[in-house]
Amino acid sequence: MQLNLSDETPPAGYERLLFVEDKTSGLRAYICIHSTACGPAAGGCRMWNYASQSEARADVLRLAEGMTSKNAVAGLGLGGGKSVIIGNAASDKSEALFRAFGKAVNSLQGQYYTAEDVGISPDDMAMIAQMTPFAVGLDHGDHGSGDPSPFTAEGVFQCLKVGAAEVFSSGDLTGRKVLVQGLGHVGMSLAEKLHQAGAELIVSDINADAIAQAQARFGASVCAPEAVFETDMDIFAPCALGGVLTHETARRLTARLVCGAANNQLATPDVAETLRARNIHYLPDYVVNAGGIISVAGEIHQAGPEYRQARLAGVAERIQQILIASRETGKTTTCVADEMVASIIADARAQQAGAA
């Protein structure tokens, strides 16, 4: 193992950005700590075939900042961080690569906890955990939480029903046209819940096998990826990668409600205003998709299932509060949520200063 750890200068407001390279295993990765104001940073590890190192760097920065908001508003006593491994998850995985990554995580001495994200499975995380106790989302142990995807999907589903009640005056999804974009672990689980709730399911994905599965299991209709924003729907559930809502796609979107599991769905923050101007209710992604990190937090804090269930229930309650505040103040839901986060972090920093 020839592990090299290189600190890069992070943007203002970030605490640490580390580039990790191991020539023996082929590992190239970033670990970013955005904030530890509320506690040690926590956020998943993503393995993606980035076009360049700079693209991976931009992604980890964006995702780490989002984790600070997600963990703060969910009340988890954790800060925000993220990691990305540059590589093809279908062909580039090896035990040596994951052990090298685990050693890099361990070098941060508990400042950052990692878990599964896109391209990483519980089995992969178990290999990382061979080298560090700061790898979570494990299937074993007294407090092992396993794959966080089902918890994420459940949180999104509960929020979607709250949003439907706000927009359509009923949380009953029977007959509602819901388009799920992205059928990974979370998207497929959400599709199943929507099917069971009686929704008219539309699915879109580049993975033909996942599409076939959704058709066979749920009777879903299929939308080509390039036709998503022209498709007639009531609710849009983006569950693939981020940045799908631009000013242009927001102007084409037919849905009246957006609620999905993808991180960083808005290409830029001001897209929220475009959505609001069209009377489309957007439920902030970092609030609704907190179920996975809630599950992982239970493992980090060595808490029982009651911890997870209580905080998972709190996700939908928080969305209800955000919708009410948005309606009463005229602010976008993202503005309301961001103000909540800023207040939580300011309080945490004040407590840190008082304890110093």
Rank of each mutant, 00 (worst) to 15 (best):
A210V: 04
G26R: 03
L160A: 05
R176L: 06
A115L: 06
D22K: 02
V271F: 08
T174P: 09
G291W: 01
A350C: 15
C223I: 15
I293L: 03
D147T: 10
G119S: 12
R217K: 14
D123A: 15
A42N: 06
A29Y: 00
G43Q: 00
R276E: 10
L61Q: 05
F98A: 01
T254Y: 05
Y30K: 09
P133Y: 07
S343G: 10
S91T: 15
A214K: 01
D270M: 08
D347C: 14
E317Q: 14
K93Y: 03
S69R: 11
L253P: 12
A90G: 09
T24A: 14
N49A: 06
A277W: 08
G87S: 06
G242S: 13
R318T: 14
A51D: 05
A356I: 15
D172V: 11
E116R: 02
D270L: 07
K93R: 09
A355V: 14
Q321E: 15
T132G: 02
S170G: 07
S69V: 07
H34V: 10
C223D: 14
V244Q: 06
P150I: 15
Q196A: 15
Q158T: 12
P225W: 11
E317M: 08
V336R: 04
F98N: 06
Y282S: 04
Q265M: 03
S91Q: 13
